[in-house]
Design a binder for these strands. Structure first.
Length: 189
DNA sequence: TAGGCCATCTGGTCCT
DNA sequence: AGGACCAGATGGCCTA
């Protein structure tokens, strides 16, 4: 069968290499950002116009309304991101993915689920470890080796998919921003 | 202290 | 005309 597993690695680890057959382990989550909450009046002092110029009353009203709408729009966007975070595999307590990480994580997670379905179609079953650790998303990983299989998590990379997969050595190599997701083994039986 | 992340403001552009 | 969307600018907070 084709075995897939994933690894969450430290952001500062520039490369992960795991040989086929090795146990996968969580390397580090020390660089998870602590959750922070921004409160409304935290930014109050930014609400002054950048220029000291006094706007005409009508224009000022329009601008104020536009600012309110824009704020509301961004809050909606953030709410949608929160919903997205909530359906991704759980992270350790007090950790929250950034916006860009959330989007990349979601992309990788969709890839995982797609791949899982493909494997189920091909081999008639979903490997135990996938069921145990990754499915369904809402159950999270509870601190166990977690997250999503993906060939790519490099925030600077625009390449997709399998380009960094080292077929000869059987491991994925890639530059990493915060996490690395890699396929640890790929055994044929 | 530098850099990352974020919220907010702002003006431009497009759409209804 | 007014709203939605977008990107640049700005400044605060946090962490290494």
């Amino acid at each position: 069968d084709v075995r897939l597993a994933a690894l969450m690695a430290d952001i500062n680890t520039s490369e992960v290499s795991v040989k086929p057959g090795e146990e996968f382990t969580m390397i580090s989550i020390s660089n998870y950002r602590k959750k922070t909450t921004h409160h409304g009046d935290k930014y109050t002092n930014r609400m002054k116009p950048k220029t000291g110029l006094k706007l005409p009353k009508q224009r000022e009203n329009r601008r104020t309304k536009a600012n309110d709408r824009e704020r509301h729009r961004m809050h909606n966007l953030n709410s949608a991101l929160d919903v997205l975070r909530s359906v991704l595999p759980a992270l350790p307590d007090d950790a929250q993915l950034t916006k860009i990480e959330t989007l990349r994580f979601a992309h990788n997670y969709i890839w995982l689920l797609t791949e899982t379905l493909r494997m189920a179609d091909s081999f008639g079953q979903i490997p135990d470890y996938l069921q145990q650790h990754y499915l369904p998303a809402s159950q999270g990983c509870n601190g166990s080796p977690t997250s999503v299989i993906s060939p790519e998590w490099d925030s600077t990379s625009t390449s997709s998919s399998w380009q960094s997969w080292d077929e000869s050595n059987g491991f994925y190599k890639g530059g990493m921003k915060r996490f690395s997701f890699c396929i640890l083994s790929h055994n044929q039986q």
